[in-house]
Design a protein around this nucleic acid. Structure first.
Length: 514
RNA sequence: GGCAGUGUAGCUCAGUUGGUUAGAGCGACGGACUCAUAACCCGUAGGUCGGCGGUUCGAUUCCGCCCGCUGCUACCA
């Protein structure tokens, strides 16, 4: 039986259209999911939308529609994006679904049964008009002594009945968790931050509201809806069938690797494990936080007008180059920057020149000089052995990189071998050898094709479409495209007729200035 | 303010458990080649390794201070 692997993105808050930040997390998670599938794991990949809460209500009101209508409309946009990006998710969860209500109420009851939920009062600066609380520092007092909230509406000190989660009881358990499971949080910087946060002392958490009703009702007290995190985080187990922990999916796939943005690290590494401990559910395997994307080094914002949508980007460069760019250019876990120039540079240097051109020059030689038939190699020289050894070493390097989500390092290793392959090709000068030594020429062609086969297989997670084209050009059987066929195991056998070579990665040429 | 991290070639970064000439990719420039998507290959970049001071025979790598940048410092997802 295959080992299993469960991976999730954070669920997106759909009070607006998806932007490149959402796309980035989705693409990266998809790459990991695909990598693990190819490496022999039975993978479950979940993404979705987090649709409750006050902000949805406020946005809906501004647009003159209901929260439900807003959620339906925008969630559909996120679903469209999964198609646009070619995501291989197995499920798409919406927190407004019935299965999620059942799940949230069950985890609530489990935490309550464990004695971790109690009723008390939540106090703060409340805006009746916004139906929202504001932190003290978000408010300003005007000259006439009236205090206003962030939206410019008057606020008043309100004490509201609220359920609390006994987070304070979990401080030591959480610290013990980080200690016992050092890879629970990644990258390390985030882990350090979380530990110092928890060490500084944990207060109990307000987990219900009575001021609005766009949420999941608290069991036994429908005046309250669950507030934010119990609702949002629970999605990860809802999708596996919780509260039925004997459910097939749950048994098979939990615990998860959660891929999230660095802004929600605390919720996933403090609140979430505490909730699960309380409810008696096993904890996630690991939480890995990626960084933010910047447009030319500047934060993206509507006022700067530098927000780029995933659709525009895919339209401009194509899906696979976009996926490749973000995963190669940005160190996964750190902030990154993108620009038209940087994307074009990657497309042309890495994709068109290093990989595309190597495929083109070698395959067209086979077409022209060997009748389009992949040759059978003769005795291998040291040079042949060397480039093959580097190529065959890639799986181990990629696995090592993916084990800690260092996707960019895996790509770096692959392109290192491509550089070596170009030097090999040049040094062997097959265009000259062809005239004097046909057997040697055939061997050089075979070796190069074998490098391309391995590279083609390894880049499938990042560029599924382009990789398939490359492997098609090598007439590689669909069933021979997983990682088990890398290296000696799936070595190309000569004598196979190849299709006519076509370009896979076109150069990006700037349009004439208009 | 406190805690943590970071500042290396035009750009993006790697690296040195302290030690002869500090590396890669991209860009730029020069050369070679002509199989190929004007691609590929070879060579060049003389960078105070943020600043000042200290430890040491010797520091970019250790310590201190300073400057710049970033993150965290709880109920907005």
């Amino acid at each position: 039986m295959k080992p299993t692997f469960y991976i999730t993105t954070a669920i997106s808050y759909p009070n607006g259209a998806p932007h490149i930040g959402h796309a980035y997390e989705d693409m990266a998670t998809d790459v990991i999911a695909r990598f693990m599938r190819l490496d022999g794991y039975d993978v479950r990949f979940l993404t979705g939308t987090d649709e409750h809460g006050i902000k949805m209500l406020q946005t809906a009101r501004k647009e003159g529609i209901t929260a439900r209508e807003l959620a339906d409309r925008n969630s559909a946009r996120f679903i469209e994006m999964t198609k646009l990006l070619g995501l291989s998710n197995d499920d798409f969860i919406r927190t407004t679904e019935e299965r999620h209500k059942t799940s949230c109420q069950a985890i609530w009851e489990a935490m309550e049964k464990n004695g971790d939920i109690y009723l008390n009062k939540y106090a703060g600066w409340y805006s009746v008009r916004d139906e929202a609380y504001y932190a003290e520092e978000e408010t300003v007092v005007s000259e006439d002594g009236i205090r206003f909230g962030a939206q410019g509406t008057p606020v008043e000190w309100v004490e509201e009945e609220s359920y609390f989660f006994r987070l304070s009881a979990y401080q030591d358990k959480l610290l013990a968790l980080y200690e016992a499971q050092p890879d629970f949080i990644g990258p390390d910087e985030r882990r350090n931050e979380v530990i110092s946060f928890v060490k500084s002392g944990l207060k109990d958490l307000s987990i219900s509201r009575t001021t609005f009703d766009w949420g999941i009702p608290v069991p036994g007290n429908p005046k309250h809806v669950m507030y934010v995190w119990v609702d949002a985080l629970t999605n990860y187990i809802t999708a596996l069938g919780y509260p039925d922990m004997q459910a097939e999916l749950f048994q098979k796939y939990w615990p998860a690797l959660h891929i999230i943005g660095k802004d929600i690290v605390r919720f996933h590494t403090v609140y979430w494990p505490a909730f699960l401990m309380s409810a008696g559910v096993p904890l996630p395997r690991r939480v890995y936080a990626h960084g933010f994307l910047f447009n030319r080094g500047e934060k993206m914002s509507k006022s700067l007008g530098n927000v780029v949508g995933p659709q525009e980007m895919v339209d401009a460069y194509g899906l696979d180059p976009v996926r490749y760019f973000f995963l190669r250019e940005v160190s996964f876990g750190q902030d990154g920057s993108y620009s038209h120039e940087a994307i074009v540079a990657r497309m042309n240097a890495d994709l068109a020149n290093n990989l595309g051109n190597l495929a083109q020059r070698s395959l067209s030689m086979i077409a022209k000089n060997l009748g389009g038939v992949l040759p059978v190699p003769g005795a291998l020289t040291d040079a042949d052995e060397a480039i093959l050894a580097s190529t065959y070493g890639l799986l181990a390097a990629c696995r090592e990189a993916f084990a800690t989500q260092q996707i960019h390092q895996a790509l770096n290793a692959i392109w290192g071998v491509l550089g070596e392959a170009n030097r090999y090709f040049d040094a062997e000068a097959p265009w000259t050898v062809r005239k004097t030594d046909e057997a040697r020429f055939a061997t050089i062609m075979w070796v190069t094709a074998e490098v391309l086969r391995n590279v083609g297989i390894l880049i499938q997670p990042v560029m599924p479409g382009s990789a398939a084209k490359l492997l098609d050009l090598l007439a590689l059987d669909e069933a021979a495209r997983d990682f088990a066929h890398l290296g000696e195991a799936g070595k190309l056998t000569g004598g196979v007729a190849l299709p006519a070579p076509v370009g896979i990665f076109p150069r990006y040429v700037e349009k004439a200035a208009s």
